[in-house]
Every structure is written in C-alpha cells, then in structure tokens.
C-alpha cells in the first residue's frame, strides 16, 4: 500500500539534487573544457560525452519502466505503476536528448540531420514507442487497468530494443556509409576520455535518480489522494447480506 511520508521535503532528496547538479557541472566542465580534442574529430568529441551518457540512461530508464510494469502486473501495487510512469517519462526525455545530440553531431560531420546509424535509429523507434505508451495511458481512466495495459505495452517495447538494434546493425553493415562513430575507435579510447565519459555517465545517472525521486514523490501523493477519495466513497458499514 502507499504509505504516507511526511509532507516536508526529506533531507536526502535535497542531497541527491545537490549531487546531481554537481555531477552535471563536473561532467560539463570536464567534457567541454578539460577534455583534449580528439585526434580524428576534434572539438566535436565533446558532444560524445553528453550524447553517449544520456543514451545509456535512456535505455536503462526504459528497462526500469518495463520491469516496474511487470511488477505491477504481478503484484498490483500502485508504487510499481508510479515508478513505471516516472521511468518512462525519464526515458522519453533522455531519449529525445539523445536524438538531439545525435543530430547535433551528424550535421557538422556528415552534413545531414539524420543518419540511419543503428543506435540512433533504435533510439528514435524507442522514443516513438514511449510516446505510444503515454497516448494509451491517456485513454484509460481506471488506474488499475491503465497500469496493466501500460505495463503490457512496455513489455513489447523492451522486447523490441534488442531486436531493433540487431536489425539496424544488420542494415548498417550492408550500407556502411554514414555511421556515427563517436567513441573514436570504441574500446581503444584514450584513458582520460574514458574517465570523463564515465564521469558523465555517473552524472546522467544521478540526474535520472533525482528526477525519478521527485516524480515518484508526486506520483505517490496522487495515488494516496485517489485512495483516500475512493475510501470515502465506499460504504463504511460492513453489513454482510446472507441469503438463507
């Protein structure tokens, strides 16, 4: 059941917020200023830190949304649905940022706003699917049913991620032009750059965690208000009607 936390803002939430903001600042600083320019891509590599970290978190968020949905299907606890929605919203946000990052990169380098890079295509499809989740949620009034249907769609979304990635990769290997290779050679990245990337990933994760915490708080408050209203509208008497 949804318990009632105190109405005052808990201290740990402020700490988390502070850490997230610090992380963002540190990540931005190292990415924009400290990082050396890349051998091949020059200053453009700086986009990579934000773009890659945000991309990873968007997929993580989708996974969290789908798993929370599955827990809701199994248990029916409103908390699970609240977590699922929060994670889906975050996934949508981070996914959109990933696409913007990708487009920002591809314009100067490949002279096009879009390229059928596997990861970018996958992200675009995922964002489209997440929009679908919210459209469907908007059509259902009953919270239980809404959560169940949304969970089911998220399961399909989750299943689609590895499949879509495979297809996009397959496609790209046959059309090798115009790939975004932001990591400048993959595993053989300069150790400093790797550190900066990891720092940015941690920063993105902190921001995700903070957004989730805030959103879940709001969601739980809504759920509690709803429960209170429902309890009021239920009959208080506990009369059992027995047919003889």
């Amino acid at each position: 059941m949804t318990h009632a936390p105190s109405e005052r803002r808990p201290a740990w939430l402020n700490v988390l917020a502070a850490l997230a903001v610090l992380g963002l600042a540190a990540g931005a600083w190292t990415g924009l200023v400290t990082s050396p320019p890349d051998v091949n891509q020059g200053e453009l590599i700086r986009i990579m830190y934000a773009h890659v970290s945000v991309a990873w978190i968007s997929f993580l968020a989708t996974g969290v949304a789908a798993i929370a949905g599955m827990i809701f299907l199994w248990r029916g606890a409103r908390l699970a649905d609240v977590v699922s929605v929060a994670a889906a919203e975050a996934a949508l946000l981070f996914g959109a940022l990933t696409i913007i990052g990708g487009m920002t990169y591809s314009r100067p380098t490949l002279n096009t706003f879009w390229t059928w890079d596997a990861k970018l295509t996958l992200t675009a499809l995922m964002v489209a699917l997440l929009v679908g989740v919210f459209v469907v949620r908007g059509l259902i009034d009953d919270p239980q049913r809404r959560g169940r249907v949304s969970a089911v769609i998220l399961i399909v979304v989750l299943a689609s991620l590895p499949l879509n990635y495979l297809a996009a990769e397959w496609f790209r290997t046959l059309h090798p032009a115009k790939a975004i290779d932001l990591t400048g050679g993959g595993v053989t990245m300069d150790p400093i750059m790797l550190q900066i990337l990891l720092l940015n990933v941690v920063a993105a994760a902190l921001i995700f965690g903070w957004l989730m915490a805030e959103r879940i708080r709001i969601g739980l408050r809504e759920a509690r208000a709803l429960e209170a209203r429902e309890a009021r509208e239920r009959d208080r008497e506990d009369e059992v009607v027995r047919v003889r």
Binding site: E233, R234, R236, D238, V240, V241, V243
Partner: peptide, 24 residues
C-alpha cells in the same frame, strides 16, 4: 467481501458483502 468497483471517477459498487449458498 467488501467488493467495490470504480470506473474512473465514478464509484459504482461501494462495498458489497454477500453470502449466497449454492442452489438458490
């Protein structure tokens, strides 16, 4: 046992408790 059913904003069943024996 205290069966309630709500449709969106409308509470249709407010808490029914019933015992109905077989054959009735």
């Amino acid at each position: 046992e205290r069966v309630a059913r709500r449709f969106g904003r409308e509470q249709v069943l407010r808490g029914l408790s019933l015992r109905l024996p077989a054959g009735r």
